[in-house]
């Protein structure tokens, strides 16, 4: 097999090993369960609430939105892991290996998407029993869900890689949290976006989180629920356009930024970051 084919295969096994590690180690397992369980608790409290005058159960609106939000959060996971892997030298190790960066990225895509699937299942399976008012007994629902998930990942993972390349320390990653929480707050995840002022709606629609929530709602909710959405439409075309734009931008920028970042990696830069990290602790 060609060296590049080898690297792709090695990357696949790398991703699977990392995925297995994440379900066999206490800390990672906690991470897998923490957010899904928190979201389930949220759903539990929303179970009897209805949205405004529509009479539509709020839980049914929120469940698909949470799926969309979680999927978009894979961007943050990607970014955090990249930063962590730079800090401890994993990335440099990949750089010291022939076609290692290719294998590294392949592995990362597999482990992050695989981890996301696990997280989504941990949330979705119990949630289906908690929430009424979904329309999930048609195959089209699940196909749309998969489609939105796939497009969403292509839109967000490269962006996550770019963010991971830009932030050189875990502390920098921390700075990301606040703006992301702000975007989640205005993206109509826990309450429909239509209640927000127009300009905030505009801001939210520039980011993938809103569109992934919308796409997931279009997949799992009955047709009449569309009345809650902006313009009384699922806006599939716009969803594809916005997520597609993020995907194209990410795929164009990510290789450039990643290459630039990788070029700068060296033993001393890793050592420098380690010393900085130790100083913070000490």
């Amino acid at each position: 097999m060609s060296p590049v084919g080898n690297a792709l295969r090695a990357g696949r096994s790398r991703g699977l090993v990392e995925l297995r590690q994440s379900v066999t180690n206490g800390g990672d397992l906690f991470n897998h369960f923490f957010w899904p369980v928190l979201m389930l608790v949220t759903l539990w409290f929303l179970r009897d609430r209805e949205f405004g005058q529509s009479g539509f159960p709020l839980g049914a609106l929120v469940l698909p939105s949470i799926l969309g939000m979680n999927a978009a959060m894979a961007m943050v996971t990607m970014s955090q892991q990249l930063t962590a892997d730079r800090e401890d030298g994993t990335l440099l190790r990949a750089k010291a290996t022939p076609n290692g960066l290719l294998g590294y990225l392949t592995g990362k895509l597999i482990s992050v998407s695989g981890g996301l699937l696990i997280d989504l299942s941990i949330f979705l399976l119990p949630a289906l029993f908690l929430v009424r008012g979904l329309a999930v007994d048609r195959p089209g629902a699940w196909l749309t869900l998969l489609g939105v998930l796939l497009l969403g990942l292509i839109a967000t993972l490269p962006t996550g890689a770019v963010l991971g390349s830009v932030f050189t320390s875990a502390r920098g990653q921390g700075l990301l949290t606040l703006p992301i929480l702000a975007v989640i707050a205005i993206s109509g995840i826990f309450y429909p976006i239509s209640v927000l002022p127009g300009w905030l709606q505009g801001v939210a629609q520039a980011f993938p989180i809103y569109w992934m929530g919308l796409g997931m709602r279009s997949a799992l909710l009955p047709p009449e629920a569309v009345a809650v959405e902006l313009g009384d439409s699922w806006r599939h075309l716009e969803t594809v356009a916005v997520l597609g734009a993020w995907a194209v931008a990410g795929l164009l920028i990510a290789p450039v930024v990643l290459r630039r970042m990788a070029r700068r990696e060296s033993g001393s830069s890793v050592a420098e970051r380690r010393d900085r990290a130790l100083q913070r602790v000490g």
């Binding site: 090993v17 401890d88 033993g267």
Partner: peptide
């Protein structure tokens, strides 16, 4: 100094890195 791949097992990492050299 390397601190990478702490969660990997010794043999596992050697097999992973070795795989890139085939060819």
């Amino acid at each position: 100094s390397w601190r990478d791949h702490g969660k990997w097992r010794v043999r596992e990492l050697l097999a992973q890195v070795g795989a890139y050299y085939h060819g």
